[in-house]
Protein backbone atom coordinates (compact mmCIF):
# COMPACT_ATOMS: atom_id res chain seq x y z
CA UNK A 1 0.00 0.00 0.00
CA UNK A 2 1.22 3.44 -0.87
CA UNK A 3 2.66 5.56 1.91
CA UNK A 4 0.34 8.47 2.74
CA UNK A 5 1.78 11.93 3.41
CA UNK A 6 -0.22 14.84 4.82
CA UNK A 7 1.21 18.27 3.98
CA UNK A 8 0.15 21.10 6.30
CA UNK A 9 1.31 24.24 4.48
CA UNK A 10 -0.46 27.45 3.58
CA UNK A 11 1.46 28.44 0.48
CA UNK A 12 -0.36 26.73 -2.41
CA UNK A 13 2.68 26.72 -4.65
CA UNK A 14 4.76 24.95 -2.07
CA UNK A 15 1.92 22.47 -1.57
CA UNK A 16 1.85 21.95 -5.30
CA UNK A 17 5.57 21.35 -5.65
CA UNK A 18 5.68 19.01 -2.64
CA UNK A 19 2.66 17.11 -3.93
CA UNK A 20 4.27 16.70 -7.32
CA UNK A 21 7.66 15.65 -5.99
CA UNK A 22 6.28 13.20 -3.45
CA UNK A 23 3.59 11.91 -5.80
CA UNK A 24 6.25 11.17 -8.40
CA UNK A 25 8.04 9.01 -5.81
CA UNK A 26 4.86 6.98 -5.30
CA UNK A 27 3.57 8.63 -2.15
CA UNK A 28 -0.11 9.36 -1.68
CA UNK A 29 -0.31 13.07 -0.86
CA UNK A 30 -3.04 15.20 0.71
CA UNK A 31 -2.82 18.80 1.89
CA UNK A 32 -4.21 21.03 4.63
CA UNK A 33 -3.92 24.80 4.29
CA UNK A 34 -4.06 25.71 7.99
CA UNK A 35 -3.61 24.20 11.43
CA UNK A 36 -7.32 23.54 12.13
CA UNK A 37 -7.67 21.84 8.78
CA UNK A 38 -4.62 19.67 9.48
CA UNK A 39 -5.95 18.51 12.86
CA UNK A 40 -9.38 17.84 11.40
CA UNK A 41 -7.92 15.70 8.65
CA UNK A 42 -5.80 13.74 11.11
CA UNK A 43 -8.95 12.66 12.91
CA UNK A 44 -10.42 11.07 9.81
CA UNK A 45 -7.54 9.96 7.61
CA UNK A 46 -4.48 8.69 9.42
CA UNK A 47 -1.41 9.34 7.22
CA UNK A 48 1.99 7.67 7.61
CA UNK A 49 3.96 10.93 7.72
CA UNK A 50 3.07 14.59 8.33
CA UNK A 51 5.01 17.48 6.79
CA UNK A 52 4.19 20.42 9.02
CA UNK A 53 4.91 24.08 8.30
CA UNK A 54 5.59 26.21 11.37
CA UNK A 55 4.01 29.46 10.18
CA UNK A 56 0.48 28.25 9.58
CA UNK A 57 -2.40 30.75 9.86
CA UNK A 58 -4.69 30.19 12.82
CA UNK A 59 -3.12 27.48 14.97
CA UNK A 60 0.53 27.44 14.04
CA UNK A 61 2.69 24.41 13.41
CA UNK A 62 3.96 24.09 16.98
CA UNK A 63 0.40 24.12 18.34
CA UNK A 64 -0.54 21.40 15.87
CA UNK A 65 2.53 19.38 16.89
CA UNK A 66 1.63 19.78 20.54
CA UNK A 67 -1.94 18.64 19.99
CA UNK A 68 -0.69 15.76 17.93
CA UNK A 69 1.75 14.59 20.59
CA UNK A 70 -0.93 14.87 23.24
CA UNK A 71 -3.20 12.50 21.34
CA UNK A 72 -2.34 8.87 22.14
CA UNK A 73 -3.60 7.76 18.74
CA UNK A 74 -1.31 10.18 16.91
CA UNK A 75 1.70 10.31 19.21
CA UNK A 76 3.77 7.84 17.21
CA UNK A 77 3.11 9.56 13.91
CA UNK A 78 6.38 10.83 12.38
CA UNK A 79 6.34 14.60 11.83
CA UNK A 80 8.78 16.56 9.66
CA UNK A 81 8.76 20.22 10.65
CA UNK A 82 9.22 22.78 7.89
CA UNK A 83 10.23 26.37 8.59
CA UNK A 84 11.23 29.40 6.60
CA UNK A 85 12.97 30.94 9.57
CA UNK A 86 15.71 28.41 9.90
CA UNK A 87 16.66 29.70 13.31
CA UNK A 88 18.22 27.41 15.84
CA UNK A 89 15.39 28.33 18.19
CA UNK A 90 12.77 26.73 15.93
CA UNK A 91 14.85 23.62 15.48
CA UNK A 92 15.41 23.20 19.20
CA UNK A 93 11.75 23.67 19.89
CA UNK A 94 10.78 21.13 17.21
CA UNK A 95 13.24 18.62 18.62
CA UNK A 96 12.00 19.14 22.16
CA UNK A 97 8.44 18.67 21.06
CA UNK A 98 9.30 15.35 19.48
CA UNK A 99 9.49 16.12 15.76
CA UNK A 100 11.09 13.38 13.68
CA UNK A 101 12.81 15.71 11.24
CA UNK A 102 13.42 19.37 10.55
CA UNK A 103 13.78 21.10 7.19
CA UNK A 104 14.51 24.70 6.29
CA UNK A 105 12.98 26.52 3.34
CA UNK A 106 14.07 26.68 0.63
CA UNK A 107 14.60 22.92 0.66
CA UNK A 108 16.00 20.55 -1.90
CA UNK A 109 13.39 18.18 -3.30
CA UNK A 110 15.60 15.18 -2.78
CA UNK A 111 16.14 16.12 0.87
CA UNK A 112 12.40 16.17 1.43
CA UNK A 113 11.95 12.79 -0.23
CA UNK A 114 14.84 11.38 1.83
CA UNK A 115 13.42 12.82 5.04
CA UNK A 116 10.02 11.29 4.35
CA UNK A 117 11.59 7.91 3.53
CA UNK A 118 13.66 8.03 6.72
CA UNK A 119 10.64 8.99 8.79
CA UNK A 120 8.63 6.07 7.36
CA UNK A 121 11.44 3.60 8.04
CA UNK A 122 11.96 4.88 11.58
Amino acid sequence: MAVRVLIAEDDPHIVESLSFVLGREGFEVSAALDGEDALRRLQTELPDVVILDVMLPGRDGFEVLKALKADPALRALPVIVLTAKGQAHDRRMAEQMGATGFMTKPFSNTDVVDAVRRAVRA
Binding site: D11, H13, Q87, K105
Partner: peptide, 21 residues
Protein backbone atom coordinates in the same frame (compact mmCIF):
# COMPACT_ATOMS: atom_id res chain seq x y z
CA UNK B 1 15.17 41.40 9.20
CA UNK B 2 14.11 38.03 10.44
CA UNK B 3 10.66 38.64 8.92
CA UNK B 4 12.14 39.75 5.60
CA UNK B 5 14.25 36.62 5.60
CA UNK B 6 11.15 34.56 6.18
CA UNK B 7 9.17 36.38 3.52
CA UNK B 8 12.00 35.93 1.04
CA UNK B 9 12.37 32.26 1.79
CA UNK B 10 8.76 31.41 0.95
CA UNK B 11 8.87 32.42 -2.74
CA UNK B 12 12.45 31.12 -2.92
CA UNK B 13 11.15 27.73 -1.83
CA UNK B 14 8.72 27.51 -4.73
CA UNK B 15 11.30 28.80 -7.16
CA UNK B 16 13.92 26.32 -6.04
CA UNK B 17 11.59 23.38 -5.84
CA UNK B 18 9.97 23.91 -9.23
CA UNK B 19 13.21 24.65 -11.00
CA UNK B 20 14.62 21.45 -9.53
CA UNK B 21 11.59 19.57 -10.84
Amino acid sequence: LSQVSHEVRTPMTSIRSFSQI
